[in-house]
């Protein structure tokens, strides 16, 4: 049994169905990638799991039906790191991190902060600074650190490399690997198919609301059709 089982997941925006019943399995301790082009339904999938939008179909977490309200999903340990570096501008870096631990009882907050500051030394330097004044890369580090503050069982990252300089993108992927190394299950949603397939154990390809292909990261990397469609290579 996998940690998170998604069966027949459907999401509609008004009369338009964005996801037409997808099945996914997310295995414990692995990096699972969900790749696809713009508008394929990747973010919709993540939002449905988070309880941010209504869905039909079943999502089971450790064998139990996942609650549908977002605060209970977070409490269960499924943490979404949203697209577009949504830091709380106007709050300090440290306050942003503390919000990440909102769902916990607060007993471990000192050690947790310390751990994130060790992982992201730049955040320690800027702990009392307004989070809105950080650079794009620093903001991305902050939202990842904020997500880790919640002791996630599954960390879902939505387009973490979007709009970042290449050197920062590499840093982000290095961090994702270290998160996996620490035993956390990761669901990675990315347009950057090449790099995400390299670091993922298993991947799904989403097209127009359907899963069109799945397999191990390396098998998809060597698939000529995938290469043509997503990796910018010719057959």
């Amino acid at each position: 049994m996998s940690l998170l089982e998604i069966r027949g997941l459907k999401v509609s925006y008004g009369y338009v169905e964005a996801l037409h019943g997808i099945d996914m399995d997310i295995e414990e301790g692995r990096v699972t990638a969900l790749i696809g082009s713009n508008g394929a339904g990747k973010s919709t999938t993540i939002k449905a799991i988070s309880g941010m939008i209504r869905h039909s179909g079943s999502i089971t977490f450790s064998g139990k039906e996942l609650p549908s309200s977002s605060n209970k999903v977070v409490k269960a340990g499924i943490i979404q790191i949203p697209e577009g570096r949504r830091v709380f501008a106007g709050l300090s870096v440290e306050e942003n991190l503390k919000l990440g631990a909102y769902s916990l009882d607060g007993k471990t907050i000192k050690e947790d902060l310390e751990r994130q500051y060790e992982l992201f030394p730049r955040l320690r330097e800027r702990s009392s600074q307004d989070a809105g004044t950080l650079s794009g890369g620093e903001q991305q580090m902050l939202v990842i650190a904020r997500g880790l503050m919640a002791h996630p069982k599954i960390l879902m990252l939505d387009e973490p490399s979007l709009g970042l300089a290449p050197i920062v993108v590499n840093e982000v992927f290095r961090i994702i690997e270290s998160i996996k190394g620490a035993g956390t299950t990761v669901l990675l949603v990315e347009q950057n198919a090449n790099t995400s397939l390299k670091i993922s154990d298993y991947a799904y390809v989403l097209e127009n609301g359907h899963i069109v292909k799945e397999g191990t990261g390396s098998s998809l990397l060597s698939d000529p059709a995938i290469a043509a469609a997503y990796l910018g290579k010719r057959e």
């Binding site: 709380f88 106007g90 919000l99």
Partner: peptide, 23 residues
Amino acid sequence: TKVGLAMRAVSIDPETSKLMGIN
């Protein structure tokens, strides 16, 4: 306080606040 911090978070960005587990 924690509740106060959550109130400020909601005032800045209600959607992202939900992802923090704030009801």
